[in-house]
C-alpha cells in the first residue's frame, strides 16, 4: 500500500430485506448484496474492484457514496464515518466523494443543459459568484477535453463518449478527493473506451485523485488500477497489486476469472488453458454455507471436497506483501 489511507472500509455489509404480506409487511428473507467487505484506498491511489454481475461491487459503490445506507460496518473517510454520517456532516463528506456512472445516456438529466448540469454542484454548495460558476463550467469542460461552447447544449446532442466526459466533469466539479467510478467504460464502444480510460488516468495525475474503479472487465481494471480486489457473492476473495494478481493469482475464482478473459492474440489464445467454471453464481438471498465459492470451485473438487470448505467461511489472510486471499487452501492452487 502506498501512502496513508484516505478511505478505510471495514466489515461493510449491505442487506436488502425481501418483504411480504398484504396488510402488515414482514421481512421474510434478505439479500446479502455486500457481506462483510474490508479494504483501503490510499490518497491518490486507484483501487480496482472486479467481479461478475450480482457480486455486490455496485452496491459497494452505492454504500460509499451513501446512495444506500450500509446495514453494518464502518466506512472511515478521512476521520469521519461515512456509514453513519447524517445531515451537515454527510453533506460535507459528499462534496469529497463523487461518482461516475456506467450509462452515459441515463446519468445526465435530459432536460438540463450541460452548463446547468456542471453548475449545479456549485449552486448547491454556494461556491463563488455567478460569474465564477460560469467560468468554472468552461474550465471543467476544457479539463475533460470538450469545447466550452458545448455548455449551452443538451445531453442528447452528444455521443456516448462525450456524455461520459460530461459525467466525469460533473464528478470533478467540487474538487473531490475520491471518485467512485462504477463501470465507467463498459457502455462505450472500444475505441471510445480508450479515450475515457486515458482521461481518467490523466486526471488522476493532474489532480491527485484517488479512484475506486469498479468494472467487470479485468483487462480494463488491471490497466488502470494500482491494486485490484476481486469480489464474489458479496465478499472480497482476493486483493493484490494489479500486476501481481495477474501474474500469480491465488484464489481459485481469480484464477478461473483470469483464464476466461480473452486475449486479442491468436497465438496466445491457442496455447491458453481455460478453467471453465460450472454452473451459475448462487443467489445472494440464499448463499451457500461455508465458502461462498464452494459450489463452483474446481480446486475443492481437485482436493477431494474437503469438509472445511462447506462449513467454514475463509477469512482474508496475507500470502505476501499487500496480497491477501480468502481461501482455506491458498498454497494448493
Amino acid at each position: 500500500m502506498s501512502g496513508e489511507p484516505l478511505l478505510t472500509v471495514k466489515d461493510l455489509a449491505v442487506r436488502f430485506p425481501i418483504r411480504e404480506g398484504l396488510v402488515r409487511e414482514r421481512t421474510v428473507a434478505e439479500v446479502r448484496a455486500v457481506d462483510g467487505v474490508s479494504f483501503e484506498v490510499a490518497k491518490g491511489e486507484i483501487l480496482g474492484l472486479v467481479g461478475e454481475s450480482g457480486c455486490g461491487k455496485s452496491t459497494v459503490a452505492r454504500a460509499i457514496t451513501r446512495v444506500v445506507k450500509p446495514s453494518a460496518g464502518t466506512i472511515n473517510f478521512d476521520g469521519h464515518n461515512l456509514a453513519t454520517a447524517e445531515g451537515r456532516e454527510l453533506q460535507d463528506l459528499r462534496r469529497r466523494v463523487q461518482m461516475i456512472f456506467q450509462d452515459p445516456y441515463a446519468s445526465l438529466n435530459p432536460r438540463m443543459t450541460v452548463g446547468a448540469i456542471l453548475r449545479e454542484p456549485a449552486d448547491i454548495y454556494n461556491v463563488g459568484t455567478s460569474a465564477e460558476r460560469t467560468g468554472r463550467v468552461s474550465e471543467l469542460l476544457e479539463l475533460v477535453g470538450l469545447d466550452p461552447r458545448f455548455a449551452e447544449r443538451y445531453p442528447h446532442e452528444f455521443s456516448g463518449g462525450q456524455r461520459q466526459r460530461i459525467g466525469v466533469a460533473r464528478a470533478l466539479a467540487l474538487n473531490p478527493d475520491l471518485v467512485v467510478a462504477d463501470e465507467p467504460v463498459s457502455a462505450l464502444d472500444v475505441s471510445v473506451q480508450a479515450q475515457i480510460l486515458n482521461l481518467l488516468a490523466e486526471l488522476r495525475q493532474r489532480l491527485g485523485l484517488a479512484y475506486l474503479f469498479i468494472a467487470h472487465d479485468l483487462s480494463v481494471v488491471r490497466h488502470i488500477s494500482d491494486r485490484t480486489a476481486v469480489m464474489y457473492l458479496g465478499k472480497i476473495v482476493e486483493v493484490a497489486p494489479s500486476a501481481e494478481l495477474n501474474s500469480s493469482p491465488v484464489h481459485p475464482y481469480s484464477i478461473a476469472l483470469l483464464s476466461a478473459v480473452p486475449i486479442p492474440d491468436p497465438a496466445i489464445e491457442k496455447r491458453r488453458k481455460r478453467i471453465i467454471l460450472k454452473g451459475d453464481v448462487p443467489s445472494p438471498s440464499n448463499p451457500p454455507s461455508g465458502c461462498a465459492f464452494q459450489t463452483r470451485c474446481w480446486l475443492k473438487e481437485k482436493l477431494g471436497n474437503p469438509e472445511r470448505c462447506n462449513t467454514e467461511s475463509p477469512q482474508l489472510v496475507q500470502v505476501s506483501t499487500g496480497h491477501q486471499v480468502a481461501c482455506h487452501f491458498p498454497d494448493k492452487a
Binding site: T65, R94, Q98, A106, N109, I124, A173, L174
Partner: peptide, 17 residues
C-alpha cells in the same frame, strides 16, 4: 432510481431540489 437522480443525490442536492 434514474442515474441522474442518484447523481444529484451524491452531489448533495436536497429532496426539494
Amino acid at each position: 432510481e434514474a442515474d441522474y437522480v442518484v447523481a444529484a443525490r451524491t452531489i448533495g442536492a436536497s429532496r426539494m431540489r
